[in-house]
Amino acid sequence: MKSVQVCLSPALLPFYELDDAVAVVIDIFRASSSICYGLANGAKAIIPVADLDECLPYRGNGCLVAAERNGEVVEGFDFGNSPFSYTKENIAEKTVVLTTTNGTQAIRRCLAAKRVVIGSFLNITTLSDWLRKQDHPILLVCSGWKNHFSLEDTVFAGAVVNRLKTDGTVIDDAAQAAESLYLEARGDLATYLRKSSHHQRMQRLHIEQDIAFCLREDLVSVIPVLEGKELVCLNEPAAPVGRP
């Protein structure tokens, strides 16, 4: 019997059993979206690190270093976590070392899981189809904002719950709540998520185009999976990658 749970904040991860779980890390605005897009566009690997200092040894060693804090690119780094930086022209055949305010922190906290994969609207169908075939418990991990609940990550988790749920699926209360939010939002995700705090934060930074891009469904057909310290493609793109 399949089990699907939703962790609404990385701060709650100590209360979940990770050992046998497939952990799906979600950071819709924008890390998980950019990771999916970057690997689909030919990045050799993306290495998620927690701290800025962890990026520095990679500088000048054939890697691109990317850092975002509070929605903005950190000075001195090649770029941040906007999907518009993760185009084929910028990153094909390159390794990117990435640190972000929320997403890479959540990935690092999931290292004890059986497997760690990355979810976004960009790869939602490919991801959901793959998760449906897994024999392990599924834990959808919302990266949130500095350990606080985030609406966009939870709505995405609810969309995945909705796709995975069958009569035999065991889901927890957080998954029930996430699905309810998704069902309320799905008619117009963009309008619904305008009230999210991170959407408003990104508007103040004049990066609304990133918001629209991150809500595009099924733009890519890759599933980023953590192998050692690197995120790589679990599967190859089945179709040409769309452009922002």
Score class of each variant (00 low, 15 high):
residue 189 L to K: 05
residue 211 I to D: 01
residue 76 G to W: 05
residue 190 A to R: 13
residue 207 I to G: 02
residue 108 R to L: 04
residue 163 R to P: 02
residue 103 G to H: 01
residue 55 C to H: 05
residue 109 R to C: 03
residue 30 R to F: 09
residue 106 A to I: 02
residue 218 D to F: 08
residue 15 F to C: 10
residue 188 D to Y: 08
residue 213 F to T: 06
residue 212 A to V: 07
residue 224 P to H: 12
residue 205 L to W: 09
residue 121 F to T: 02
residue 32 S to N: 09
residue 180 S to N: 11
residue 213 F to D: 03
residue 23 A to S: 14
residue 221 S to Y: 00
residue 35 I to P: 04
residue 184 E to L: 12
residue 122 L to A: 08
residue 144 G to Y: 00
residue 20 D to P: 00
residue 147 N to F: 13
residue 148 H to F: 11
residue 161 V to G: 12
residue 50 A to L: 09
residue 114 K to A: 09
residue 102 N to C: 11
residue 160 V to G: 02
residue 27 D to N: 05
residue 115 R to P: 00
residue 84 F to S: 05
residue 100 T to L: 06
residue 217 E to W: 07
residue 172 D to R: 13
residue 32 S to F: 12
residue 69 R to T: 01
residue 51 D to R: 15
residue 90 N to F: 08
residue 141 V to A: 00
residue 163 R to A: 14
residue 180 S to A: 15
residue 106 A to H: 03
residue 8 L to V: 11
residue 228 G to F: 06
residue 152 E to H: 02
residue 203 Q to L: 15
residue 47 I to E: 03
residue 47 I to G: 00
residue 9 S to T: 14
residue 143 S to V: 01
residue 237 P to I: 03
residue 146 K to W: 04
residue 154 T to N: 07
residue 112 A to R: 14
residue 66 A to E: 10
residue 49 V to Y: 08
residue 240 P to Q: 14
residue 109 R to A: 07
residue 161 V to Q: 08
residue 112 A to K: 15
residue 78 D to W: 08
residue 244 P to E: 12
residue 236 E to Q: 09
residue 243 R to A: 06
residue 209 Q to Y: 09
